[in-house]
Structure formats: C-alpha cells, structure tokens
Simulated scan of single mutants.
Amino acid sequence: MIDDLQVALDKQRDSNIRAVHSYEKYNDLDTINAWSANIAAQNPSLVSLSQIGTSYQGRPMYLLKVGKSGTNKKAVFIDCGFHAREWVSPAFCQWFVKEAVNNYGRDAQFTNLLNNLDFYVLPVVNVDGYVHSWTTYRMWRKTLSVNKNSACLGTDLNRNFNAGWCTTGTSKNPCDDTYCGTAPESEKETKALADFIRSNIGSIKAYLTIHSYLQMLLFPYSYTKSLAKDHNELNTVAKGAVSALTSLYGTQYTYGPGASTIYPASGGSDDWAYDAGVKYSYTFELRDKGRYGFALPESQIKPTCEETMLAVKYIANYVMKNA
C-alpha cells in the first residue's frame, strides 16, 4: 500500500529538525511543551498551564485548562498521545486549543462553550514513548518503563486502567504491544491521569480520548460485550457527532461500543472513566482506514483536525445542555 515506507516516514517530519511550532506539521515533544507554555502565557484569561504528573523517565505531563473563569463549571477532559506512534492524535489536541483561542468572541457557538464549560486538554499522555517514536523507533506504542525480569520495555497505557484489567484483548507478556502492566495504574502516566480525573470527578462530565487510526467513534464497553447502562444515549450522541464530522469532507466513520465495533480490550481509559462516573466517555480513532495508518501524511493533519473539531464540539454542546 505504501511504495516506500521510509520515504513516507521521512515526509512526516521535515528532514531539518524544526523548533518552530506548526499546526499543520507533526511537532516533537519539546516543541509541543514550548507551545503549551506559550499559548497559556499569551492567553491568560482563557488558557492556564499545569503539570499533573511525571513520566517514568521523569518528563513532565503538562495539562492545559481552556475556558473563561467561572464558578461551578462543568468540564470536558480531552487527552491525546496515549500510543506513541499515533502522531495525528497530539496534533488534534494542539489544534483544539488553537481553535478555542482563535474563535473565542468570534464564533458564537464556541464562545458559548468556553463560557459554560472548562476543557482540560492533555496534549501528550505518553511523553516518554512519544519521544522514543521520534528518536529511536517510529512505530513504538507503549511507555518506556523497565519490566522486571524482562529485557522488553514498556506497558500499553490503554490496557493499564482498572476496567476489567488484563482480562481480554491484552497480554501479560512484557514484550507484547498490549502488555497490561503488573497491576492497574502500575504506570506513573496512568496513575497521574486517573488521579486527576478522580480529584475532579464532580465537574468532569465528558472524557474524550483521541487515538488513530480506523475512523471510529467508540464508547463503553470494550472489556465486556454487555451494553453500558447509558448505551442508547451514548449511541445517539455518537451518531450525531459522526454525522457532524462527515458533513465537512464526507469522511466515513463507524460508531458503537468498543467490544463489538473494533475488538474486545480490557483496561482502557474510556471504560475506566465511564465506570468512575464520567457518563459521556468516548474514544476517537482518527484517520485513516489503513492506507497510511500511523504514517498519515502531514497534508492530512488539517482536514483531520477540522472534521474532528465538529464532532468534539457536537459532544461538548450536548454535554453543556444535558449533563
């Protein structure tokens, strides 16, 4: 499907190492971190920067809070970069913050959302893995934690949550891409994310985790074939979000519960968040369907982000009115 994979990968990152941030190119972690600090400093009434934790290798996990200050605001949590090789995912989190900053006061719907909701945006969850995918192995997925009695590194963060942990669609072998870890939240990154959501569970009404690829919008459950108690509502919201997304470029998405729509998998963050009390919990699998897969060209960042914004705004708007 790809004539020369190395050429495709080289085109994903400009040959000269860029320190200049761009919304239409893939940015390395240092560039994303500098951008995070910068956009918060330039928009103090709308964006604030904090650190929710530290990775296994000691890198900070930065979180952006986006919204106008207010009391008792409901919140939407969005994270990107769970799996290191899914580069279009962090690109979307950056795009989302840009759109919020640029459209506040200009776009009525977005202004209303930012007045009434807070958005917590975690641009890169798996910071160590993301760096590794830039410097060492482009197709790396997991964290980089050391595993006892194994030469193989890392745990799959999206198998490490306490949601049917290590029961289905996962591996107990540290050398496998879907290794579940030694226990739920054994990874520092998992625990930092879970701790933040737990400590803000009263306000967080939606959890959106951005992955790639397959063009799907998934909701609980993945660890069981049983339907979530809110299945009908979650399905209706997903249908509306997918319809909004498709309206821009005609990109076709499927939607439904994770276990039956993509595959059974335990320990996922969306299932965990739902069980923790975040009703509107969704996983996006962005473009494409496998033509480029993880090697999605930079030319597709803009259209991917534009269409995904429509779905995210649809869900946020629903949450604002109904949560």
Rank of each mutant, 00 (worst) to 15 (best):
V7S: 13
D10A: 12
Q12E: 15
Q12A: 10
R13L: 10
R18G: 11
A19Q: 12
V20I: 12
S22C: 07
Y26D: 08
D28G: 10
I32K: 00
N33K: 15
N33E: 14
W35A: 04
S36R: 01
S36Q: 08
N38Y: 06
A40T: 09
A40N: 05
A41N: 13
Q42V: 09
N43P: 07
S45N: 15
L49Y: 04
S50I: 08
Q51S: 15
I52F: 09
I52M: 11
T54W: 04
Y56N: 15
Q57K: 15
V66A: 08
G67C: 12
G67R: 00
K68S: 14
G70S: 15
K73T: 10
K74Q: 15
V76I: 14
F77I: 08
I78E: 03
C80T: 02
A84D: 07
R85F: 11
R85N: 06
K98V: 10
K98H: 11
E99T: 15
Y104H: 01
R106W: 03
A108M: 09
N112K: 14
N112G: 11
L113P: 09
L114N: 00
F119K: 00
V121S: 02
L122K: 03
N126S: 08
D128R: 00
D128E: 01
Y130M: 10
H132C: 09
L144T: 12
K148D: 13
L153K: 12
N158H: 06
N158Y: 07
F161H: 13
G164I: 05
G169V: 03
N173T: 13
N173L: 10
N173C: 06
C175H: 02
T182R: 08
P184I: 12
E185D: 13
E189I: 03
T190N: 14
F196Y: 11
F196Q: 06
R198Y: 09
I201V: 11
I201K: 07
G202E: 01
G202W: 02
S203Q: 13
I204W: 05
A206S: 15
L208Y: 09
I210L: 10
I210S: 02
S212K: 04
M216V: 13
L217Y: 09
L218P: 12
L218Y: 00
F219V: 11
F219K: 05
Y221D: 11
Y221I: 09
S222D: 10
L227G: 10
L227Y: 12
K229M: 13
D230Y: 07
L234K: 08
L234R: 07
A238F: 01
K239A: 15
A241E: 09
A241W: 01
S247K: 05
Y249S: 03
T251M: 02
Y253L: 04
Y253E: 10
Y255G: 11
Y255A: 02
P257G: 05
P257N: 11
S260Y: 01
I262S: 03
S266Q: 06
S266I: 04
G267E: 06
S269Q: 04
D271N: 07
D275M: 15
G277Q: 10
S281C: 01
F284Y: 15
E285D: 13
L286T: 03
D288S: 08
Y292S: 10
G293Y: 06
P297I: 02
Q300G: 06
C305D: 11
C305M: 02
A311C: 02
V312M: 11
V312Q: 01
K313T: 14
I315C: 04
M320T: 00
A323M: 02
